[in-house]
Amino acid sequence: MFFIDAELIRLLAFVLGVIGFVALNAAYLVWLERKEAGHIQRRIGPKEVGPFGLLQPLADALKLMTKNLITPDGVDPILFKIAPILVMVPAIMSFVTLPFSDTLVARNLDVGLLAVFAFASINVLGLLLGAWGSRNKYAVISAARVVSQNVAYEIPMLVIIVTLVMITGTLNLHEIVTLQTGGFWHWNVLKFSASPLMPVAFIIFFICMLAETNRAPFDMAEAESELVAGAFTEYPGMGFGVFFMGEYANIVVGTSLATILFLGGWDCPLGLFPGVHWFLIKMYALIFVVIWIRWTYPRTTFYGLLNLSWKILIPVAFFNLILTSAMLKVF
């Protein structure tokens, strides 16, 4: 007889599902981005391939895949090839512990929040190695920017997370959402009983999320008017494609995390019909905002970003931490 662990099958199904979800998201977020950018700029965006240009991502993927995978002269072949995977895989791994709904979660880890952040920090390593390995001056400048940017932004982000963990008292993502159920006034973003600065904390988290995923206005890593394509300058075809997908996967992780931590996950704003659809609505709304921001603002500079982090975000985050702990102690 076959003794196959049911849990293992479930896990495999979930991993496959997650990979499919991520790939589909990465492809269609490109479509969404182009469409949204188009309409913001009063154009249509992709429209030729399929209805509303819906088949455009497939055409793009096909184009990228048929391109020759060149390994340029002088690059470190191992680092050069491993880097895109190092960006992609941790993003997929993060999904393992993200609860999409009450039941839809691959592994409900007790240290889920910690695991997500552990995986998220590998992403930077991938970019650094890829840039370093491709031996391009633009790429190396970009790598230096990515690393210091991430170091600067992990601090306010983690301070906000510490505040949140103090409020909820758990690192289990599923539990964090469960504590927020019952309508939008229970969500962490509006938990004024813990701290009156919770909306500000959410904004800081959101800004840090943008910076961590290298999205505009913090896209200094691939600032195309300065560094051509930054860390991806030397990457051809699908090497670039995987980086690209990894970036969008990271955005999905970031917005999912924001949904879970602050917006009540799968909880309905009015306490009715909770479920995965609410999670997806909130997540895509946040992604819409991310794209909307990208097509509105110019890019910051490197020192502008550090100034923002050290002079505004970190003090405010710490102030929020102290305020929260005081309020938790008092009430």
Binding site: E36, G38, H39, I40, Q41, R42, R43, I44, W292, W295, T296
Partner: peptide, 12 residues
């Protein structure tokens, strides 16, 4: 400003 333009008709 950008969201207002998002909902305006395209000009191209």
């Amino acid at each position: 400003i950008t969201i207002v333009y998002f909902f305006k008709p395209v000009v191209t």
